[in-house]
Amino acid sequence: MGMLTYVLSRLAGLIPVLLAVSFVSFLLIQLSPGDPAEVVIRVNALTPTPELLAETRTQLGLDKPFLARYLHWLTHALQGDLGTRHIDGKPVAEEMARALPPTLLLAGTAAVVILLCSIPAALISAFFEGSLPDVVLRTLLFVSTSFPTFWAGLLLLWLFSVHWDLLPLSGLEEPRSLILPSITLALPYISTYTRLLRGSLLEAKQQNFVLYEKTCGLRVTTILRHIFRNSLQTSLTGLGMSLPRLIAGTFVVECLFAWPGLGRLCVSAIFNRDLPVIQAYILLMGILFALFKAFMEICAALADPRMRDRGKK
């Protein structure tokens, strides 16, 4: 199978998945308890009188059957119209588009922090296996993973922002604002990747080619480079799949640092039961996960042609 055919078939396979995602996200919201019309009225601090309820139901199209509503929503969503927010009537798509870049920035920086910390840590830990640096590093990482994110964030805030007054406390007003939130977001992942990478480094160290290279008298740095490259694939795939998780997992960090991203948009939508926003958020996350999975599979297929043929057997 040619690479292009593989990519095209993989992308075509996404269509039913995305349709299913859209259906589930629509269904979930429909199944949530309470009358959506009443929710809209209450969220605007109004009294749900029968007249107002009837008017709102018609406005929201709730008087139409379920499938008709889904198709209406889907056709509009395909054109980029995700409805309007209950709370202020602003277009959901616009709000999501505004909140997405800060979240991508935060998740992207966190991914860089994860790589910058976990690669050296794994290298040290793997090549000095069992020695003091290995034990110290692993203990530190174990402790850092055990911190709940909000607590670690608060601690960092207090130390770097209040006590030493080195960094801004909240919001996205200057580039330095990015430092603490991205570290907080990255913390629980650093340990995971260090352990993942350390494991594959140790595994690669035991392989025959290392012994062969040693006997051939190759330079240590060259051997190290080969070990590293061979062990990188697993952890990179892991990191790739974690990117959507990082994007979806910014809730706590965004609230703590008053970061104007998607997580906060969704949290406030949940508190206000702003259903169109929650629905769009579920849809977006579903799409992100599906896309990243497809992307990582294509990357893996590029790197290893055996992967392409797997489906045929």
Partner: peptide, 11 residues
């Protein structure tokens, strides 16, 4: 200023 977290407000 909007700060959703109470602890951050105190800090």
């Amino acid at each position: 200023k909007v700060m959703p977290d109470h602890q951050s407000i105190i800090l």
